[in-house]
Amino acid sequence: MDEQPVTSLAADPLTVAALDTERHVASAGWDQPARLFALVRTAALLAREPHLRDQLGPADRAARTFTAIEQEGLPATSSLETLLGRIAWPDEVDGCAFAIERIVVPPDAERDLPERPESAVEALASHPDRRDVRLLVAVLRDGSSICLLRQREHDSDDAVATGKDIAPGLVAALLATFED
């Protein structure tokens, strides 16, 4: 994983929006369903919805910032591909962010798994070296992307790994939601 310190990326508006969105998701704790957010340029949002100005601070209203708008009511599906394959964004949406929790295990933990999917999931979930992580991937129409990874065991110290190549498949799937 190509980790970069958050401070070196903090000037990038997409990274700022991703970090703010991840903090928002983290504030609700763990064991959450997947969450999807539209990213819109704050200036354009305020031009369309001026009544929102009072809800945003001066830094939020800066010219290059993005505002994350949660898309509630995601259909419950076990297939991430099916869920993302149904999404298309209107032109007013500049990007999106997707947060999902996963279990990570060492590669050798995947050897000799039971054949039944339910049993395999149970075996992985009870593995002594399992790690719970929250992944947030944010993309823009222009192809820009950032990935954030928070481990449950480091939740209290607010340590979030950042990088462009943490979840390339999810980046590609989210970018595909902007294709015509």
Rank of each mutant, 00 (worst) to 15 (best):
L56I: 05
L56E: 06
L56K: 05
L56Q: 03
G57L: 03
P58F: 00
P58C: 01
A59P: 07
A59C: 02
A59M: 09
A59N: 12
A59E: 13
D60M: 08
D60W: 07
R61P: 10
R61H: 08
R61E: 07
R61V: 09
A62S: 12
A63F: 13
R64V: 12
R64Q: 10
T65Y: 03
T65C: 03
F66A: 00
T67W: 10
T67H: 14
T67K: 11
T67R: 10
A68E: 13
A68Y: 14
I69W: 05
I69A: 04
I69M: 05
I69D: 04
E70W: 08
E70N: 08
Q71E: 10
Q71H: 13
E72L: 13
E72Y: 12
E72K: 08
G73Q: 04
G73S: 02
G73M: 08
G73L: 13
L74K: 01
L74E: 03
L74Y: 11
L74H: 04
P75H: 01
P75A: 05
A76I: 14
A76E: 08
A76P: 14
A76V: 15
A76Y: 03
A76H: 06
A76C: 09
T77P: 13
T77W: 00
T77A: 01
S78P: 12
S78Q: 15
S78F: 13
S79M: 05
S79Q: 07
L80P: 04
L80W: 07
L80G: 14
L80V: 02
E81V: 15
E81M: 06
E81N: 10
T82R: 11
L83C: 09
L83R: 02
L83A: 06
L83E: 02
L84D: 05
L84N: 03
L84R: 03
G85F: 05
G85R: 03
G85L: 02
R86N: 11
R86F: 05
R86T: 14
I87V: 15
I87R: 01
I87Q: 02
A88W: 08
A88T: 11
W89H: 14
W89D: 02
W89Y: 02
W89A: 06
P90T: 10
P90C: 00
P90F: 04
P90D: 00
D91Y: 07
D91K: 07
D91M: 10
D91S: 13
E92F: 10
V93T: 09
V93S: 01
V93W: 12
V93I: 01
V93R: 03
V93C: 06
V93Y: 08
D94G: 07
D94N: 09
D94A: 11
D94W: 11
D94I: 05
G95E: 01
G95R: 07
G95S: 08
G95I: 09
C96F: 04
C96R: 00
